[in-house]
Nucleic acid binder design. Structure first.
Lengths: 208, 208
DNA sequence: TAGATTGTTAATCGATTAACAATC
DNA sequence: TAGATTGTTAATCGATTAACAATC
């Protein structure tokens, strides 16, 4: 059972592929060539074919790739053919914004509850429960939760992550500006500030 | 005047360096070696020195790097020794969240106004103005704005970006899930969804 | 001074691009 | 069938790591 490790360079491109293919499907495009894909993505046809070959290849010689099939495959690879239950830990500005956003349901990401030290400060839609952070372990024992979103101040982000891990949650989406790295838990760090700083870097170095 | 192009691999690491050095400065650490930095960042000392040498090198042989100086340098390179005026275009959930967040002021990023088609829906702190999107050109003619944040629905993100460019704003921080690429404007695309999808990929491929 | 650690040059590794036989 | 386009192998390019003389 050799699971050939796929490079992060490739993996990081997968969501962009999915976005493109979804668009094409909406437009009713039936099939595309690697060359067309590369032009739309701003890369090379070689890279597109090389990327796909990591997953065994999705195409037919002389025809190209079936758009619908590409969509299905990308979704399946990214795990988007499943649904996920989420909790938010930290009900401040960012936590509330995510809870109130409401755009995740239709992607199969269900935000079930928000945990905060001061529940009375937290305003979220009525279908989302709000509990004291103390209750996290109890709650996750009774409810299957796949992903925890950390929206705490950065000072407590790391200890929060450890608690989440102890609750048996296997994945963390971290919005605190404190890098989190923890064995046995999948973590994706967002770091909005870093993105903004890259922009100011560009502004000041004036190299388009 | 040869401006040697610095690779994006290096640039993408700069904000993480800054974060580390700020932490060290807070803790009162006076100086560090490339080896210590590499351990804290999870890279190699070689890479650290190689990265710094892109900017001429910051250290002294036998001593290492002065933490305070490193902070200053990183901030200066990233343009964080300046202040910026921002407007938000699109006053929906995300736009309001950013306007209400309030954490950017102390970094020197001043959110001055929010533009939306339906101003009466937009609730933001009183020091931030709210205008109809029509007024964007007028406003930017009278006020120096450095960065526009796009928080519109993805369907209108691209045309919004073009309007912003026509107003003479030189940088866009894009939160719409529509990739924006426009000549003559610096763009940083956020794509929160992609980050979430990378997490579900990890969950499903079970390779830590 | 001797020890430590830099900045830089050289070697290695990995990712991207090019080329092409296989085949729809 | 002939043309188009794949999947894959080989070549190139760039980024990371190792090594070391320079020097604080």
């Amino acid at each position: 059972m050799e699971k050939q490790k796929i490079s992060t360079a490739v993996i990081n491109r997968l969501p962009a592929y999915l976005r493109l293919f979804s668009e094409l499907e909406e437009k009713g495009v039936a099939h595309v060539s690697s060359n067309e894909i590369s032009e739309m993505m701003g890369t090379t046809a070689s890279q597109v074919r090389q990327d796909f070959s990591n997953f065994g290849g999705f195409g037919r010689q002389g025809y190209g790739y079936d758009v619908k099939y590409l969509c299905e495959q990308m979704q399946s690879i990214l795990g988007l053919d499943k649904t996920y239950n989420l909790v938010i830990v930290g009900g401040g500005k960012i936590g509330q914004a995510l809870a109130n956003y409401g755009g995740y349901d239709k992607l199969g990401f269900y935000i079930k509850a928000v945990f905060d030290k001061e529940v009375w400060h937290v305003r979220v839609p009525s279908h989302i429960d709000v509990f004291d952070t103390e209750k996290l372990a109890d709650y996750t024992a009774k409810n299957k939760i796949d992903i925890a979103i950390i929206c705490t101040p950065k000072e407590v982000a790391l200890e929060t992550a450890k608690k989440i891990k102890d609750c048996g949650i296997k994945a963390i989406w971290n919005f605190a500006s404190q890098e989190i790295k923890l064995d046995g838990v999948h973590v994706e760090n967002v770091h909005l500030n870093e993105s903004l700083f890259l922009l100011t870097y560009k502004i000041n170095s004036e190299q388009n």
